[in-house]
Design a protein around this nucleic acid. Structure first.
Lengths: 239, 239
DNA sequence: GCGCCGAATTATCAAATGTTAGCGCGCTCT
DNA sequence: AGAGCGCGCTAACATTTGATAATTCGGCGC
């Protein structure tokens, strides 16, 4: 059941049997959320952190004028709020964009891992660092890429991340979001989001129908996006 | 000399004498950089992490069309690349925006801290988590705030962060950046950056001259920015 | 099969933002 | 003192993006 987690953490450095069993002991208490439900509420002080087993979730913040901005997308094998273990108070919410199955990690158990399993601690720390690296990449995309390039970059990133946890199907992956939700990722109006999607479609590099994105020309998509996966740290080396 | 670091880490939880001495032992090898110099090069694999003692630095990425985007600003007491300890390869650069005095932390020593000092490890981890929280706040600002509000938010954030490390002077702080550099923070053209700055000035909440920002109306600035400092985790509690 | 509803798409116009160019100020170098 | 230069600032115009509204499309229940 924790296969996604093992694939995710294990891609960066090898996980010993003991570490796998520590993780098995850590993760307990499966839950499900319907699309649109909050997985973690803004302002709360969680006593456990949440790992996605299945589904798509997003961190978000809502401003006074009602505008919503997603600050990340979370796929199976991702901790959505591992940082709450140390940050204590959630300054934003996490919402299920599709039906989500999750499993919980008690903060007290996480703490004892930091006391007793330094290497596993470093891997969990690394997981949050990659989170940060993705944030930085998003900032660059929002600030200086064209909107089409930004969208292309997002698709590249999602494809690679989903591939790691075996959720791609050839060059396709499931993307259960509406154009309005995607607009809240890129920070655009729905109308303009639609224009940007049309442009990327018309360039012939992707197809998107029935909540499924298909990459028709991976090389060209990468070029449009200037995608360099270095920031995802997908090499296995001692950490 | 490490006062800024102690102020920074110590604001979240108390640092024992032993931890302070571990940090003193960790940080060694002072260096200086002129404004405009790279402190850490993109693509490099650092063997130490860098702490700012004095000056202003920024993480950045340059795109193929020459556009530059800063993904963070770093003030005294900040590690600019603590994450390189685990991420290994820099996927972006770090530049000195003003003359910078820094001090280094050997990755081998950092590693031994994770093996022997769990609480200090958690505080260092926390430091990188706050980094991530700031990134998320920037994403929200870039996506859904008006440009004036974004700028106001940035000033609120800088003021509060600088206050922690005692680098404010009343309601003023030193901001040694040109409007062009600030444009690379917000992701705007220089011309529009100038318009936005003028608008915020004209609203009477800030003054900015001689590289010094003065907050004339803190309450109103916060309102414009919808600034809520929760994400900076400025409460001292067990971590 | 029919009608309803949410989502996608298009059209039109308005506002925000970018581009290019130029001016002026204050600084430094000679 | 004069020239050069970086930087702030403004103007004029082009392009991108947003707002509003209408139309189409597709799934789903009756």
């Amino acid at each position: 059941m924790l296969e996604s987690l093992f694939l995710n953490l294990g891609q960066h450095d090898s996980l010993s049997d003991e570490e796998q069993s520590l993780l098995g002991d850590l993760m307990a208490g499966e839950r499900s959320f319907a699309a649109g439900q909050d997985i973690v509420a803004s302002g709360s002080r969680p006593v456990y952190s949440t790992l996605i087993l299945d589904g798509l979730a997003a961190r978000y913040k809502v401003l006074a004028d009602g505008g919503r901005q997603f600050s990340s997308l979370q796929v199976p094998g991702d901790f959505v709020d591992l940082y709450a273990f140390l940050l204590k108070t959630m300054d934003h919410g996490v919402i299920a964009l599709s039906p989500c199955r999750v499993i919980l990690a008690d903060h007290s158990k996480l703490r004892s891992i930091t006391e007793r399993a330094p290497h596993l601690t470093r891997l969990l720390w690394l997981d949050t660092l990659i989170d940060g690296a993705i944030h930085r990449e998003w900032i660059v995309a929002m600030g200086r890429r064209s909107k089409v390039s930004h969208l292309a970059h997002l698709f590249c990133e999602l494809f690679v991340r989903l591939q790691v946890v075996k959720r791609t199907n050839g060059m396709s992956f499931h993307l259960p979001v509406s154009q309005a939700e995607l607009a809240d990722v890129l920070g655009l109006s729905v109308v303009h989001m639609n224009r940007v999607i049309s442009a990327l479609r018309n360039s012939g590099v992707i197809a998107w129908a029935n909540h499924t994105v298909t990459i028709l020309d991976w090389r060209k998509l990468q070029q449009i996006a200037e995608f360099d996966p270095t920031y995802l740290s997908m090499t296995r080396e001692p950490r």
